[in-house]
Design a protein around this nucleic acid. Structure first.
Lengths: 193, 193
DNA sequence: TATGACATGTAACTAGTTACATGATTCA
DNA sequence: TGAATCATGTAACTAGTTACATGTCATA
């Protein structure tokens, strides 16, 4: 149930509409906590109904601007510091690595290499993002920088790990990874996200 | 829809019952792809109904042993190498960091420090796990080792990042992180998972 | 014989996704 | 005036969680 708290957190800075909040999810939060438009709008409605937000203004085109209430701020702070945090999110990539014994050695190293390339792209994208932001001393920026730094370190680590992993597979015995070989893959293997 | 593929992947090694598979989820996959008992059983039923698995044996206490069919193996391989992989899982921890501007500076560094301690525990636990396994050259072990190594590097990286992050907050200006101070927290802050 | 491990299943719920529907306002 | 953007909403679905219900078998 983190989406509701993400919304409360974003509204801590300043009032915003559902549309505004969607921009934030699509821009800065897409890789941390993606959300769909329908989810954001319905959650805002529920949040307002339960008194954690209020509709503080209505604008053109039916725009509703939401503002955090005291109860909402209290709930946000409670969640931030007192509620248990899940620090081991599901990882589809690692799950695939774990199960790679089911495909040929070539396909396995292919997947690992693809993970490395993806990490490479991430490194570049995060570097560019970092350069594009004028970092000021505001709270949101301070904590946003911490997250960006984490993402950069994660991407760099992933890159190194992937290289190491490919080496490991190439080094580990000459026996094929599989009894039955599946027919060769079509060239386009991993769509980009 | 990765759970179905996780089940197919585990059954690639050898036939197993729902109960057997639950042990694997609770042991080796708990931090990568947790699953509940009810989810595993109902997914196995669906998988068998759609022909990706068959009930290859029935044992005492109604035990049903499932075996991967050719169609199941094909689906598994397809998913592993051809289906798009989500490499940016939702991270509740990073979401909280991003929103930490809503609490006091002390509470923020408290949370960051807790993340560091958690990473510390992880490092120790993973080291112990590594030592406890007799690594042989089998596929599952080879790829399992890759995952374990990733987890170790991630934990070590998180530990260093957390220290750096706490320093950043302490260094960044003397102004309090917040307008209104929430009342001081009760001592037990983050339950252990 | 009773406890614990083995073993499966259902029901009700919450969270998240996809697709569709609708309409207002701005501005080139 | 037509396209892009702003803006909100609903319906149907899939995935995942929590809680409960039921019964068998081994062994201490």
């Amino acid at each position: 149930m983190s989406l509701r708290h993400a919304l409360l957190g974003l509204l801590h800075e300043q009032p915003a509409s559902g549309y505004d909040l969607m921009q934030v999810f699509n821009a800065s939060l897409q890789n941390i906590w993606p959300a769909t438009q329908s989810q954001v709008y319905s959650e805002l409605t529920k949040l307002a109904a339960s008194g954690l937000l209020t509709v503080s203004a209505e604008g053109p085109r039916g725009r509703k601007e939401y503002t955090l209430t005291d109860a909402g701020r209290a709930e946000l702070q409670h969640w931030l510091v007192e509620v248990e945090t899940d620090v081991h999110p599901r990882s589809e990539g690692l799950l695939k690595v774990f199960l790679l014994g089911a495909v040929s050695r070539e396909q396995a190293t292919g997947f690992l290499a693809w993970l490395g390339e993806t990490a490479d792209h991430d490194v570049a994208a995060l570097e560019a993002l970092d350069a594009s932001i004028e970092w000021e001393d505001e709270d949101l920026h301070v904590y946003g920088r911490l997250v960006l730094e984490f993402a950069k370190r994660l991407a760099a680590m992933s890159r190194e790990w992937s290289d190491w992993a490919v080496e490991q597979i190439n080094a580990s015995g000459g026996a094929p990874g599989q009894r039955e070989q599946p027919e060769p893959q079509q060239p386009e293997r991993q769509p980009r996200r």
